[in-house]
């Protein structure tokens, strides 16, 4: 099936396809075990009658950071929400094409979005802790899964906070209300909360855009550490950030407002930033538009 799709896709967007392959291959050599790998084939998304993303085909390699870049409104968040089927919650969204996680079609009938979302966590643009204690925030996902045993929850909470690099700052005050943390701490709490269900993939939609430089740095360090165990897809408007933290970069662009966005180029970050195949990528990266 993949081969059939491949030839169909190659005809439409040969350039994007070949660079997707290239990016994936480069990263896979460094982390061979493949869990948390996404394959998108001809993915299109429409809000009501308006198609906003058309024909996106790319691979998201496991245990690596993939950055989604592109001007505002080009559908980065929309594409991200396809990966955990959060678009389902918006009501008027139609997604077509195929999206496979570790070889399994996530849009198939039998797939429960609840199971998918345990495997694909999400961190939002603005820190959005629940109005409850630090502990209860992190334990929310596991409790939703039915874990009730105190010692088990304690272990998950500690482990998740450690992975999000927040443990040392809050270990003495887990009962404290989450709103009493700083913005940067709240965002790391949200990362810990997403990690608590042991997802294979973490989706991050501009996770540092509402934060100060030091908090941003901490988030970036966390991402660098996390990618050893989790696949990360991050949306960012900050080119330096994309260049610093990602292994693969995908550039999306809506060339005209009445046209859907397309994937212009995807490939190894170093290549995309130093020697992009497409002149539009270069123009965007060097700040000539967007």
């Amino acid at each position: 099936m993949v081969t059939g799709l491949r030839s169909a896709v190659m005809a439409v967007s040969a350039a994007a396809w070949s660079s997707a392959e290239e990016g994936a291959r480069v990263v896979e050599e460094t982390s061979p075990q493949g869990s948390g790998r996404f394959e998108l084939r001809s993915v299109s998304v429409a809000y009501g009658p308006e198609t906003v993303i058309e024909d996106v085909t790319m691979n998201i390699p496991p245990q690596a950071v993939t950055a989604l870049i592109g001007p505002s409104g080009c559908g980065k968040s929309t594409l991200l929400r396809c990966l955990n089927r959060m678009n389902d919650e918006l009501g008027n969204v139609r997604v077509s094409g195929t999206i496979a996680l570790d070889g399994q079609d996530i849009m198939a009938r039998g797939v429960d979005p609840v199971d998918l979302r345990m495997r694909v966590g999400q961190v939002f643009q603005r820190p959005n802790p629940f109005p409850m204690s630090i502990y209860d925030n992190v334990a929310y996902g596991p409790r939703t899964q039915g874990i009730r045993r105190r010692d088990e929850l304690d272990a998950i909470v500690e482990d998740s906070l450690r992975r999000a690099a927040l443990w040392d700052e809050v270990k003495g005050s887990l009962k404290k209300h989450a709103f009493d943390l700083s913005g940067g701490q709240q965002q790391r709490l949200c990362i810990a909360r997403a990690l608590a269900t042991h997802p294979e993939v973490l989706l991050m939609d501009e996770p540092a855009s509402a934060l100060d430089p030091i908090s941003t740095q901490q988030i970036e360090d966390t991402v660098a550490e996390l990618k050893r165990s989790v696949t990360i897809v991050i949306v960012t408007h900050n080119m330096q950030q994309a260049a610093r933290i990602s292994d693969q970069t995908a550039f999306m662009l809506r060339e005209r407002l009445d046209m859907p966005a397309r994937l212009i180029e995807v490939g190894e970050t170093r290549k995309v930033f130093t020697n992009p195949d497409d002149p539009r990528t270069e123009a965007y990266i060097t700040g000539r538009f967007g």
Binding site: N84, M86, E89, V114, D115, R117, M118, G121, Q122, F124, Q125, R126, N128, F130, Y140, G141, T144, Q145, C190, R193, A194, T197
Partner: peptide, 17 residues
């Protein structure tokens, strides 16, 4: 804010929960 609902849904919570 919608974000707060989405955060819970993204953790696999049902609408009711």
């Amino acid at each position: 804010p919608a974000d707060l609902r989405h955060a819970a849904l993204a953790l696999g919570a049902s609408r009711l929960r």
